[in-house]
Amino acid sequence: MNTETNGQSLIKLEGVTKVFLTDEVETHALSGIHLDILKGEYVSIAGPSGCGKSTLLSILGLLDTPTDGQYVLNSRPVQGLSLAERARIRNREIGFIFQSFNLIGDLTVYENVDLPLTYRGMPAAERKQRVNEALEKVGMAHRAKHLPSQLSGGQQQRVAVARALAGYPSVLLADEPTGNLDSKNGDAVMELLENLHKTGSTIVMVTHDHRFARHAVRSVHLFDGRVVEESATTKEAEMSL
């Protein structure tokens, strides 16, 4: 079991601000966020609706850029990169797990997991090995030829996790991964993430559900675009005893 971090910083945000302009009104989604996430950490980002959780996750996932501040990923400042470079890093370093699974309905389970690897230009044999490995890991190898519509919500989320894992990303970003699941399937997905963390994955999960937030070892609480509290979760406290 490996729940230890190695002390190396993976993600470092310094004074990150995000401002949206709506009808000439400035909306400060994030205000001066400082955040340091170490390799191997499992961090939850919690807070009420509209507090900036998803904006923060978008910036962490290089889907959006901060208005101000610095974002260092794997020792490299990334806030000013070109679209193409951001796409490249997203493909190689970041795995996304979305609330609504976001599988492509016309692709089979296998093809969905394979898709990000094809963008990497990876040889077919290596892709096949990675896809099969990822599907085995989430227990979905037997449904490889099925379409997403033939799967339950929980199974679809497992496939989405496999897709995120297949590229061996530096960090998994999960945006309300249980939001569309019933409690049983939600628990199963949380257990899956926990197991991934135990094997060394860095996970950042956005959730507004305290029940799921406590699965992480550190919890960051946002309110009105600011970090108002950072704490070890109950689980971490239990583990340290």
């Binding site: 996932g61 193409a84 796409a87 997203r90 996304f96 898709l115 990000p116 963008y119 990497r120």
Partner: peptide, 16 residues
């Protein structure tokens, strides 16, 4: 749009 967004999030480049 949604499909394109998924592909973009997964690292699809302009060329892809």
């Amino acid at each position: 749009a949604r499909e394109m967004a998924i592909r973009t999030a997964l690292g699809a480049s302009r060329r892809d």
